[in-house]
Design a protein around this nucleic acid. Structure first.
Lengths: 158, 158
DNA sequence: ATTTTGGTTCTCAAAAGTTGGAACTAACAG
DNA sequence: CTGTTAGTTCCAACTTTTGAGAACCAAAAT
């Protein structure tokens, strides 16, 4: 019933788990993502996840629901089988990055407010740095589709 | 002795504080960054920071040292004045973004390890998504200087 | 109708993270 | 020397996060 994971995969789960924690996921959610990345079979049941990671049902349930809510995990079912087969959503990495950029652009709007408040203050150089930063963030956001295109082009060549 | 902050600035400190917390800073550190963004005078003393935010000396000290360690804040001094004048480092936003990209690229290397471990597994489509993602992250990283150039060019035109 | 399966939800305890307060230190001032 | 300033460090309290355990529930199986 338990997934067979060699030491290399176990080590990668930890690495990915930590990387995901740094990205803001709670520990169990980070491990689950890691597991779903390296699992030989990419679709795992609730209990396979729970057993592979030695975590409780509640932790498994909460984390899986969080990950599904965030659009990072989904599941399939098979008729005649009540279990859900959870899998990491990798196909949507473009949207995931897009969302991160949206977050950055939101911050840039706050910085624009800062800039407005600072107009009266006699701190031209300081303000200029803020302006540059917001301008770049917004450029990056707007330029993202073209960035994707350039990436696709760059792959074609090789 | 206390910095004069109108309601607009106070509100912005909170917004920036929350945004910075989301970025992984501890609350006090996030507020300090917010304060240093909106303060009419961009260089504040330890006690001005402490009083403006109503926080203890220990919290102020810990957070400032953290922020300095992370390269987000530094200070000047003036001869004949023992105080340090702390200020947010805005001039280095290029490096800050660069570092974030370095972090992403590190993750992409872990994903390449994943890919290697998965080669044996018969999951071509899954692996392909991982490969695309790592490839894009590495492209983004390598392309960053050119991205900056394109941004600079785009400003010249307007 | 009762049991089993595949989860969900609630409660609580342990662990981490955050902050305040007081004691401390180093440098300078008088 | 003694006092003051500008911070630092240590410790304890408080808050938040996290995850286990048990009770729970709905659908399917027997």
């Amino acid at each position: 019933m338990n997934i067979q994971l060699d030491d290399r995969r176990k080590a990668l789960i930890e690495k990915l788990g930590i990387a995901n924690e740094e990205k803001g996921f709670q520990p169990v959610a980070g491990r689950i993502l890691g597991l779903l990345y390296v699992s030989p079979r990419p679709e795992l049941t609730f209990d396979e996840i729970r057993e592979s990671l030695n975590i409780s049902k509640s932790a498994t349930s909460t984390a899986l629901n969080l990950l599904m809510h965030m659009g990072r995990v989904d599941y399939t079912t098979f008729s005649g089988d009540r279990k859900r087969y959870f899998r990491i959503k990798l196909g949507n990495w473009r949207e995931v990055i897009q969302e991160e950029m949206e977050h950055m652009v939101k911050i840039s709007y706050v910085l624009q407010e800062v800039l407005e408040v600072r107009k009266a203050d006699n701190t031209a150089n300081f303000n200029c740095n803020i302006e540059e930063f917001t301008s770049f963030l917004q450029f990056l956001y707007k330029d993202f589709p073209s960035l994707l295109q350039r990436w696709e082009k760059s792959r074609g060549k090789e």
